[in-house]
Simulated scan of single mutants.
Amino acid sequence: MSLANRPRAEQHATRAAFFIPGFATALWATLVPFAKARTDINDATLGLVLLCLGAGSLLAMPLSGLFAARLGCRRVMVATTLIICATVPGLALAESAWMLGLVLFVFGAGVGAMDCTMNVQAVVVEREAQRVMMSGFHAFFSIGGFLGAATMTLLLSARMAPISAVLLGVLMMGVVALLSARYWRGERVAHDAPLLAWPRGIVMFIGVLAFIAFLAEGAMLDWSAVFLTDIRKVDASHAGIGYVTFTLTMTVARLLGDRLVERIGRQKAIVAGALLACAGVLVLTLVTPWQASLGGYVLVGLGCANIAPALFSLAGSQNRMPQAIAITAVSTLGFAGILAGPALIGFAANHFGLIAAFVGVAMALLLVAVSTRWLRM
Rank of each mutant, 00 (worst) to 15 (best):
L147D: 06
A356D: 12
R376D: 12
V234W: 01
W290S: 03
R159G: 04
F107I: 06
A269E: 08
D115Y: 03
M172N: 02
A13W: 05
A308C: 14
M118F: 05
T372C: 14
A9W: 14
V261Y: 00
L196V: 13
T249D: 05
S57V: 07
L366D: 09
A181Q: 14
R15M: 14
A326T: 04
A308R: 02
A92V: 04
M173I: 15
I143S: 00
L260I: 15
V287K: 10
G65V: 10
L91I: 07
N306K: 06
H191Y: 07
V261T: 13
R320N: 14
I202D: 01
D258L: 12
L71R: 11
G295I: 01
S135G: 11
L168Y: 14
R185Y: 10
L63D: 00
G169F: 09
D115I: 02
A92T: 02
M133I: 12
L215D: 11
E95C: 01
E126N: 10
L102H: 07
I143M: 06
V88Y: 07
F140W: 14
G145E: 00
V261W: 00
A29L: 09
V189M: 14
M99L: 15
S180E: 03
G337A: 06
L179C: 10
A362W: 00
M134E: 02
A193P: 05
D230K: 15
C52K: 05
A197I: 04
L344E: 08
L51H: 11
A225S: 15
R266Y: 02
Y297D: 00
L93N: 12
N350G: 15
L282V: 15
G108L: 04
S224K: 00
F18E: 04
R373A: 05
S180Y: 01
F105I: 01
A324I: 03
L66A: 01
A279Q: 11
P322C: 09
G303Q: 08
K233W: 06
H351V: 13
D258Y: 09
L71M: 13
T151A: 14
I206R: 05
R263E: 09
G108C: 05
F18Y: 12
N306I: 11
R232A: 11
D192Q: 12
G218Q: 08
C116E: 09
A24F: 06
I163V: 15
A161I: 03
S331F: 04
T328Y: 00
V49P: 07
F34I: 11
G136R: 13
P21N: 10
R159C: 03
R263M: 07
I241E: 00
I327D: 00
G273P: 10
A122G: 04
A13N: 08
R74I: 01
R131G: 13
L156S: 08
V281D: 02
V359E: 13
L365R: 09
L276D: 03
I143C: 08
V78Q: 04
L82D: 07
R75D: 10
V244N: 05
F214R: 01
A343M: 15
S180P: 01
M173D: 13
F335C: 02
D230W: 02
A37L: 13
V271P: 03
A44H: 14
N350A: 15
T39K: 04
G144R: 10
L196A: 12
